[in-house]
Simulated scan of single mutants.
Amino acid sequence: MTQFYGLVIALWHQKASKRADGIVLWDYHVICIQKSGGDPPLVWDLDSSLPFPSPLASYVSETIRPSFQLFPDYLRLFRIVHAPIFLQCFASDRRHMRDSDGNWSAEPPQHEPIVAEDGTVNNLNEYFNISAAEAMTDASINSFKEAVFTQKYGVVIKENQLEEIFSQISLQ
């Protein structure tokens, strides 16, 4: 999950864009990064207009664009959650898709709302809210692996750690 600290995250090559460069400002965005064996990590982004899946290095340079100069007040952070834990624990009853009068702000997906294995019906904010204070300062791969495989809400990393972490570990 990615988020601009405080506002939104700008991502390029998004299908929802009406612009030629494909930029969209998301309040949050979920992607899957697949890492297996010695193969390069792949990004599965259902909203991307890039090849599906895309190599992580290409996805970062084309979609996240770390070379794009942001205002210094904004810091792009990533919450990394191991897929089996996410699938067990995540829940969303879609309340974030309703306006203050209870009307849908966007057409909801046709599938049923997601309920966690423990019966929780909504914990989107726990995944969604990310702060710089949560970001790992110790880039140790062992610390990252231990945390990502055990923590319900995963770990938060900074933009410059994303490629490094997934290039050095195998998440099998």
Rank of each mutant, 00 (worst) to 15 (best):
L124R: 05
Q14A: 09
F78S: 04
L77K: 05
G119F: 11
D45I: 05
A91H: 04
P51F: 03
E146V: 07
I64L: 15
N160Q: 14
E163L: 14
L56D: 05
S67M: 11
P41H: 08
S58F: 11
E117N: 09
P53Q: 07
P53V: 03
A91C: 06
V121H: 09
F166D: 01
Q88E: 15
A147N: 09
I85T: 15
N123G: 03
Q161P: 00
F68G: 00
F128G: 00
A83H: 08
S61P: 01
F52Y: 15
E163S: 05
K152D: 12
G22L: 08
V43T: 06
Q34W: 08
E159F: 04
A139L: 10
Y153W: 02
Y153D: 00
Q69N: 08
L46F: 11
V24M: 12
H13Q: 15
Q151W: 00
K18T: 15
A133E: 14
N123S: 04
S61N: 15
S170E: 15
V30Q: 03
A106M: 10
D73E: 09
S48D: 00
L124S: 10
G37D: 09
N122R: 01
P108C: 03
L77D: 02
G102S: 03
D138I: 01
L42R: 13
G6Y: 04
S61V: 06
A139E: 13
A10T: 09
G6K: 07
A20K: 12
F149C: 08
F78I: 05
Q69R: 13
G119N: 05
S170T: 15
R19S: 11
P72F: 09
F144Q: 00
Y74R: 10
L171K: 02
T63S: 15
I157Q: 03
E134F: 09
G119C: 09
W104K: 04
E134R: 10
M1Q: 05
F149R: 11
H96E: 07
P72T: 09
Q172Y: 08
V156S: 02
K35W: 10
F86P: 04
I33M: 10
D118A: 06
S167W: 03
A91M: 05
P51G: 10
L70V: 00
L50F: 03
V121Y: 07
I23F: 01
V115C: 07
E62W: 02
L56R: 10
A132L: 13
E134N: 09
E62Q: 15
G22S: 09
P55K: 14
V81Y: 02
I64F: 03
L162N: 01
S167I: 02
P41Q: 06
V115M: 04
V115G: 02
H82K: 13
S48I: 03
F71D: 14
Y74G: 01
R98C: 10
S17K: 04
T63L: 11
S105R: 12
L42I: 05
P51E: 14
L124N: 06
I130W: 07
E107T: 15
S54G: 00
D101R: 12
G102M: 03
K15M: 07
G102F: 10
I157S: 01
D39F: 12
K152G: 01
V156D: 02
